[in-house]
Design a protein around this nucleic acid. Structure first.
Length: 486
RNA sequence: GGGCCCGUAGCUCAGCGGCAGAGCGGGGGACUUUUAAUCCCAGGGCCGUGGGUUCGAAUCCCACCGGGCCCUCCA
């Protein structure tokens, strides 16, 4: 770094600002190459271009120097000759380093090997880098540095740069799909007096002026439903939610969730919406509905199978949960399958565990698991003619839960009872249950139209579509422990 | 919270009781169409941190810090 600082001073001594305020380029790297090809096709004189980018390679050969620049569009080689630039300008090339950002002006030509190249007439330093970029052969491998200093990862690892472009295309397509169907995108509070809408531990913060604790939201649901009460019939929010839990390959404490609510729809309509949306986003982002996953291929062509939860568990374990309505009986059956059963688990928790351990990881192809026990779904509407069940589905792809949805419960009296039931479950030992809040119940008492709602873990969806098994590979700056004193 | 693995030069990694190593990058030199340029020269280190064992520790043991994977939990 000392050497690079000395070079900064030499540029200054030469009367050059090593950090000039602006630079106008005429072409990106890709445009410059395209302009050359166009000139070659039409027989015109080669174009004169002004390009700019980071120095990613430099080959000095005495009285000639090749520099590879990279901008957002790609790489471009520039060629600098002593007899073209003159003594002074050519000698100053010695004070350039890998990682510096420079601008180069000159005519496009092709070298002996056919490489499109800028014949430099002039060049200028646009930003002197004081620290060296990662090594060029192996690039940056160290996962910790890749996450902590993501800019280095993006600088040298093309696949990573491309992956986050893909994430953008997926999110963009999801928005477009919903927008085109008349959904209104809204923003609801991140800081909430009660953290509801999911069963998870919230982050707690404190508002000084209000003199009260607030929670970072764990879901979007309860506010979006208030908007249905208000008269919007199709709303969605795509935003960050926060859950105060372990950091793993599948969990980041903050993650991006999509929730959408549609009045006068039920969970069957929402399944069609989900299929259509995911298939659309996949095709828009990847150009195909066949997605590589490990050594297999996931086919996202709709429609996707809809399997009742009871059937799914029976298929994968041989256990019929309806034949084990008694908690003790189901616990015994689960234990017989090799599940490490916690004695505090109640019947619905056991069902949830069977699902998570035996169905979810084995469900590679997109599958809707439908009709859940009411205790697991306190915000979902009961399924007519099916006591104890609600109209709910979860979408599994690549062994992961990607979406969760139901026909929304809009009976305020029953909703109040459901929340009380959750409180009883918690009192009986279940740590994480879904709690309601009075304001939400008051809203329901004003009347919410029948509706279907959907929640999609966007990071999970991006993982599936980009073939990644760690959420940190699809989140630009994943949560890491603070770097200690070495 | 539990288990397993990892931490050595700017980067990628060898070394695993006996002088701290290589490639790339960086420095000096040669070279006017190279592209992993090539060739010559000289450098570069609290071996994650702190204890312990030993005549002697990067190497063995313990603790701590940080990371990865799996389990737990969730989405």
């Amino acid at each position: 770094m000392a050497q690079r600082r000395a070079k900064v001073e030499r540029w200054r001594a030469r009367g050059v600002d090593p950090y000039p305020p602006r630079f106008r380029r005429s072409h990106t790297a890709r445009e410059a190459v395209a302009a050359l090809e166009e000139a070659e096709r039409t027989g015109h004189a080669p174009p004169r271009v002004t390009v700019a980018g980071r120095i990613v390679a430099m080959r000095q050969m005495g009285r000639a120097t090749f520099i590879d620049l990279r901008d957002a569009s790609g790489r471009l080689q520039t060629y600098h000759r002593l007899d073209v630039l003159g003594e002074e300008a050519y000698a100053a090339l010695d004070d350039l380093d890998l990682g510096d950002i420079v601008g180069v002006e000159g005519e496009m030509f092709r070298t002996r090997t056919g490489e499109p190249t800028v014949q430099a007439r002039a060049y200028s330093l646009l930003c002197k880098a004081l620290r060296a970029p990662p090594e060029k052969w192996h690039g940056l491998q160290d996962t910790e540095t890749r996450y902590r200093q993501r800019y280095l990862d993006l600088m040298v690892n093309d696949v990573v740069r491309e992956r986050f472009r893909l994430r953008h295309r997926i999110v963009q397509a999801v928005r477009r799909y919903l927008d085109e169907r008349g959904f209104l995108e809204v923003e609801t509070p991140v800081l909430q007096p009660h953290a509801g809408g999911a069963a998870a531990r919230p982050f707690v913060t404190y508002h000084n002026a209000l003199e009260r604790h607030l929670y970072l939201r764990i879901a979007l649901e309860l506010y979006l439903k208030r908007l249905l009460v208000g008269g919007y019939e199709r709303v969605y929010e795509l935003g960050r939610v926060f859950r105060n839990e372990g950091v793993t390959a599948r969990h980041n404490p903050e993650f991006t969730m999509l929730e959408a609510y549609q009045a006068y729809a039920d969970y069957n309509d929402i399944m069609e919406l989900t299929e259509g949306m995911v298939a659309y986003a996949t095709r828009e982002a990847l150009g195909s509905l066949q997605v590589p996953w490990g050594d297999t291929v996931i086919d996202l062509t709709p429609p996707w199978p809809r399997v009742p939860l009871r059937e799914a568990i029976r298929q994968h374990t041989g256990v019929d949960i309806e034949a084990h309505r008694d908690t003790a009986a189901l616990r015994e059956a689960a234990a017989a399958l090799g599940l490490a059963v916690d004695p505090s688990w109640d019947w619905p928790k056991l069902v949830d565990e069977l699902l998570a351990n035996f169905v979810e990881p084995r469900t590679l192809q997109p599958t809707f698991i439908i009709d859940y026990p009411v205790e697991l779904s306190p915000l979902a509407k009961a399924k007519p003619g099916a006591p104890g069940l609600v109209e709910r589905f979860e979408l599994f792809i690549a062994g992961r839960e990607v979406a969760n949805a139901y026909t929304e419960l809009n009976d305020p009296t029953e909703q109040r009872q459901r929340f009380q039931e959750q409180l009883r479950r918690r009192a009986a030992g279940q740590e994480e249950v879904e709690l309601g809040d009075e304001d939400f119940l008051v809203a329901l008492e004003h009347g919410m139209p029948p509706a279907g709602g959907l929640g999609v873990g966007i990071d999970r969806l991006v993982m599936v579509l980009t073939g990644q098994t760690s959420i940190r590979e699809v989140v630009l700056f994943p949560a890491l422990r603070e770097k200690g004193p070495a």
